[in-house]
């Protein structure tokens, strides 16, 4: 490892040279929060993006790559173009741009107890939404409060409960329309998953976005950040 303690281009500790890096949940949450903010999300939504990737990370699912792919594609997109338009039974984007999974996720959580998010009849159609994997932690939050859910799409389906996800093929979806309906209680997966390593290249690109939340320091702020006297005493 080549330490470069003064490397100005990093948002956390420098990444080890290994291609796969073991990250703590706190680290991945913090990095993704900053990256989402750096890509233009509000602070509140950026925190939710960090929560979502951290939730997946704790279950050994790679949410960082999916979030990065979404952020790189939509960086700077206007909220109105990626937030859901709520209509009975169908939440959809306002135009051609697919929904942001964080915007859709937080809105689902916010409306979870309100009639707009009712799952009666044929369920609630959502989308098209970008990187549906990032939506899963928010669905788990809804499930925690309202009971298990089934989410289905063209060619697949999965059960979501408060603590677990069964069926992992949602990870590969890029842009999809989903149908959400009340589900059945599934038995959670056995045991605790192994900590997941993250791709160095993905972390580096998230870091590039995260750096957009920082400011080159002024001489004054740099000078008066320390003690007014010497430390060598």
């Amino acid at each position: 490892m080549t330490p470069e303690p003064n490397d100005p281009t990093r948002a956390g500790s420098p990444l080890p040279s290994e291609e796969r890096v073991l990250m703590s949940q706190t680290e991945i949450e913090t990095l993704c929060t900053k990256a989402a903010r750096g890509a233009g999300m509000s602070w509140g939504n950026a925190e939710e993006a960090g929560f979502a990737v951290g939730w997946l990370h704790a279950r050994s699912i790679d949410g960082a790559s999916a979030l990065l792919a979404h952020l790189e594609r939509t960086e700077g997109a206007a909220w109105r173009d990626v937030c859901p338009v709520i209509e009975t039974g169908h939440w959809h984007p306002s135009g051609a741009e697919p929904l942001c999974p964080v915007a859709l996720g937080v809105t689902l959580c916010d409306f979870r107890a309100l009639p707009e998010a009712a799952l009666t009849g044929g369920g609630l159609t959502l989308g098209p939404v970008s990187r549906p994997l990032i939506l899963v932690p928010f669905l788990a939050e809804v499930a925690r409060l309202s009971g298990p859910l089934t989410v289905s799409w063209d060619g697949g389906a999965m059960e979501v409960t408060a603590d677990s996800v069964l069926g992992n093929d949602i990870a590969g979806l890029v842009v999809t329309t989903l149908v959400l309906s009340a589900g059945v209680a599934a038995s959670p997966a056995e045991g605790k998953p192994e900590p997941r390593k993250c791709d160095r290249a993905v972390l580096a690109r998230l870091n590039d976005l995260a750096m957009k939340t920082t400011i080159p320091p002024s001489e004054k702020s740099c000078a008066d950040a320390g003690a007014a006297s010497s430390d060598n005493d």
């Binding site: 003064n6 990093r10 948002a11 939340t213 920082t214 400011i215 080159p216 320091p217 702020s221 950040a225």
Partner: peptide, 14 residues
Amino acid sequence: WYVSEDKLEPRLGE
């Protein structure tokens, strides 16, 4: 309040 680019430490700006 901001985070400095060089050392990623919280600072106070004017």
